[in-house]
């Protein structure tokens, strides 16, 4: 045994650092939600561009995707925070952090979204158009809901990966969890203990998130109606069926 007891391993007065941890956690969540929202929007736009008939548009989107899929996230963070000021673009830490994560994850999400949209059978679009729905409504009500189901597993993995990747922002002192850990470790000289605790905090966020997303995935695949509109329509249908004496 390296330690005679757990007491030897855990000697930091964590009560003194609750504020640091909580502040870091909030920052981590802030980076995560802002970046994931941005990456999803850009990723969807890129996916739609890659499905366009116009070759130039497809090439532009493919070029972006290949560039950012093949550059390390750390390099992108350094470029946006340390590199851009040399051409007159000075970003705040939060802006640079979010921009880096958006640029990087949009490339991966676009691949997931493109595959999901392509995975919706062409007959679905035809059936919708044959019913008189225009292209916009066909996409919103027929293609997108099915594409979301197909994209969920990959997107969920990316979301959890993004939470963990915010830790790379320690390199630009982003005040998120890992930056707080570094500060606490430098104050206490208890690197093993501090990074074990911070790892446990990351686990405590990521594991429930990934399990919740898995549960959501299962519910959607099991056909549980999640939107209020769908629930209302199904309840209406059941009441009409009951009136007709045809309870399902």
């Amino acid at each position: 045994m390296l330690f005679s007891s757990l007491a030897d391993l855990f000697q930091v007065h964590w009560n003194d650092y609750v504020g640091n941890i909580a502040g870091g956690l909030l920052k981590t969540l802030g980076y995560t939600f802002a970046s994931f929202t941005g990456a999803s929007v850009v990723g969807l736009a890129l996916a739609l561009m890659r499905l366009q008939r116009l070759r130039l548009v497809r090439i532009a989107a493919a070029f972006y995707t290949e560039i950012f899929k093949n550059i390390p996230l750390l390099a992108i963070i350094f470029l946006t925070y340390f590199g851009l000021p040399s051409v007159g673009v000075r970003l705040e830490v939060f802006e640079a952090g979010v921009l880096s994560l958006v640029l990087f994850y949009a490339a991966y999400l676009s691949e997931i979204f493109r595959a999901a949209i392509s995975g919706v059978h062409r007959g679905q679009q035809e059936a919708s158009e044959a019913l008189g729905l225009g292209r916009g409504k066909t996409f919103t009500h027929v293609v997108l809901p099915q594409a979301v189901r197909l994209a969920l597993p990959g997107t969920n993995t990316m979301f959890v990966d993004l939470i963990k990747s915010t830790s790379l922002l320690v390199t630009i002192s982003a005040a998120e969890l890992m930056t707080q850990a570094q500060l606490i470790a430098s104050e206490t000289f208890r690197a093993l203990e501090v990074y074990l605790v911070i790892s446990a905090v990351y686990f405590a966020i990521c594991y429930p998130v990934s399990q919740s997303l898995l549960l959501l995935e299962r519910k959607i695949h099991a056909g549980v109606p999640l939107s209020l509109g769908r629930r209302r329509r199904l309840n209406l249908a059941k009441s009409f069926l009951a009136e007709e004496g045809a309870d399902p």
Binding site: H121, G123, Q124, E126, A127, S128, A130, L131, G132, L133, G134, K137, H141, V142, P145, Q146, R149, G223, R230, R233, L234, A237
Partner: peptide, 27 residues
């Protein structure tokens, strides 16, 4: 109206919702 060889029902919706969709969003 058109009926396809491979049905082409919308798999994310129940039977009744398949019949409702175009009424609400096209009709």
């Amino acid at each position: 109206g058109m009926v396809f060889q491979r049905f082409n029902l919308f798999p994310h919706l129940t039977a009744v919702e398949n019949v409702v969709l175009a009424q609400m969003h096209a009709g």
